[in-house]
Amino acid sequence: MKRTPSRTKKRPRLARPRAASPAGATRPAAKSKPAFVLRPAQRGDVVAVAALDERVTALPKPAHWLELYERQKKVGQPAGIFLVATASDAASRFLGFIVGEIRAWEFGSAPCGWVYALSVDPDSRLLGVGEALLESIAGEFRKAGVSKMRTMVARDNRLPMLFFRGAGMMAGPYVQLEKDLG
């Protein structure tokens, strides 16, 4: 990194000082914490999975989610894992999902658990749904005997990057390489 002289002017303001206690200032705004349950995905969940993904990414791909569900079901746990989170109230509102799989010896890598997809309803974030889904799939990977979990995140995709970093994930020993074929 190029060393540059210290800047002394025009410093951006990052966060407004708050009158609340500093401990409170470091936490997100308090929300009532509805209970939710995690369970293996069923075929009927695929529509909700596709709808949530489309809402978050703005790229509809229902066939992909159905194919992924069928593949995970065929592989079966613990190798293929597809979990969903739903509110534990009577409505069982769909809150999020996670998909992962144990893969071995691709790219010379010893068996490890890959998290392919994780998404949480934007209206239900900061409630611990994503953390619970990630902890749950990590537990499944651990039970299956693997000691490493991996995922891939676009560098500029700030929210998932912060989420996975916050969960203790660090850059691994592999570098993703690509080439334009156009």
């Binding site: 060393r3 540059t4 800047r7 951006p12 990052l14 708050r18 200032a25 470091t26």
Partner: peptide, 21 residues
């Protein structure tokens, strides 16, 4: 006292207060 948002303030936010990256 620390009074920022620990879950939103990154290392880059702090470093860029003192040097250009």
């Amino acid at each position: 006292q620390f009074c920022g948002n620990a879950r939103r303030t990154t290392l880059l936010d702090i470093i860029e207060l003192f040097e250009a990256l």
